[in-house]
Each structure stands twice: as C-alpha cells, then as structure tokens.
Amino acid sequence: MIKDITLGQYYPADSILHKLDPRVKLVATLVFIVSLFLVKTWVGYVVATLFLALVIRMSRVPFSFMVRGLKAIIMLLMITVVFNLFLTPGNRVLVSFWKFQITDEGLRTAAFMAVRLIYLIIGSSVMTLTTTPNDLTDGMEKGLGPLKKLHVPVHEMAMIMAIALRFIPILMEETDKIMKAQMARGADFETGNLVQKAKSLVPLLVPLFISAFRRANDLAMAMEARCYHGGEGRTKMKPLRYESRDFKAYGVLGLYLCAVIAVRVLGNYVRLI
C-alpha cells in the first residue's frame, strides 16, 4: 500500500557498485551532488548524464527502481519548474500572456533546475539502492572517525542513524498491518473531507505510536542486556578496508570531477550555447 518510498531501500544484486566500500559511495554521492551545482552549461550536463548513466548501468539495479524515488518530489519539481519558467527575467521573450512571460533565460533555468533535482534524487538513490543501511552507517562512522578527536559523538550518531533506518521498513510494515486491521473493522482512510480524513487517522496513529515506543523500549533493553555502552572499545566483525577496486573508483570519480571543472572553466572562455 505505502511501499513507494525508495529512499533507504536496498536492492540486492551482484555488481561492482554493491561491493564498493561504502565510504567511496558516500564520497562519490557527495561529489556528484556538488558537481551538479558546478555545471552551468549543456556540455556539463552531458558529462553528468554520461557519468550517471555509466553508474546506473554498473549497478545492475533496474532503472524503474531509480525513478521510483522521484515520486516523492514530483510536487517540488513542478513548483520549481513553474516558478523558474514564468518568473525569470531574460533578454528574449518567447511567450507572453497576461502578467507572465516566458523568456529564454527562464526556459533554460527551469530545464536546468529540473534536471538538477532529478539527478540529485537519482544520484542518492543509486547509493541507497546499492548499499545496505548498515554499510552506509558503517561507512559514515569510519569516514567521520577523525571528528572524534573534536568530541563529536560520531559513533552515537551513526548508531542512531542505523537504528532509524532499520526501523523504517518495520514501522511501514506495522502501519500496513494496523491499517488492514482497522479496515477489517470498517475503517475508511480514503474518502471524506480533510477533517474526516484527519480524524480517520487516529485509529492508525495511536497504535502506531504505542508500538514505536514499545519497540524502542525493547530494543534499548536488548542492547543493554548485551552490554552496549557506546562506541568506546567496540570492534567490528567486518572492519572496512579499502581494496584496489575502491582506489580505481576514486580514480574514476576524480576524472569525472576534473571533467566537470574543465567544462566549467572552459565555458567561461568559450561561450558554449
């Protein structure tokens, strides 16, 4: 029923991308996001598109899964496009009606913004689809390790994230179950006006909150029973170690970043479109 949220959903497959060290993927995602804000020209977007296409191909995750995450931002996307399209001043007016006008600059910004947003989501989806939440937080903990010297509670933050991520599917399943149980008692979550709809959520939200608290309590107890006392002196069963493929991946990433910067710098001299 409510299984459309892809963010934080792992897609098991046997690919190089799945095997990469999570730190590489985190850095790569970050670099990709930054690169999206660096590019200002069509050529830059072509480079980004090629890179993304290559990564998606290598991930062996069906493309339909990547796109699924876009559903969540469709409203945001529309608003961004519409505002940019109509409210950007420019030199050449293409279409004009009433108080609005579409300029060449507006069209350009709207298209770029849309592509940027879409790539942002797809780019981060690639990471979450190929990395288990556990690996992801492991990578984060290890990657941010140096911050511990500054008394940043890196381990605790990673643990909180891991637990939060772990609970998303559980709570979704629980929601589904409670929804069904109340529907079996004749509850109706779909029809009615806004007030009725909000009211109809009470039989869903109350049990859901109670169960979330119960689960949190149980988990805390279970962790304490196994002597959890924070990250101090804790070792890993599978410590993260870089392998040759990880360095190669960093190499490819570096090349991509160089290409994007080159396009940007060159773009300043040569006016490409």
Binding site: K177, A181, A184, G186, D188, P203
Partner: peptide, 20 residues
C-alpha cells in the same frame, strides 16, 4: 468491499496492537 468486511470479520495476529 466494506459490506464484505462487515460480513467476514478478520481478527489479525496480535490484535491487541490495534487498540486505540
């Protein structure tokens, strides 16, 4: 389906979790 659900009552596993 509403009519069906009022004719065919289903008590889920751990039904006490649905009390509100």
């Amino acid at each position: 389906m509403r009519e069906l659900r009022s004719q065919v009552g289903l008590v889920f596993q751990y039904p006490e979790h649905q009390l509100f």
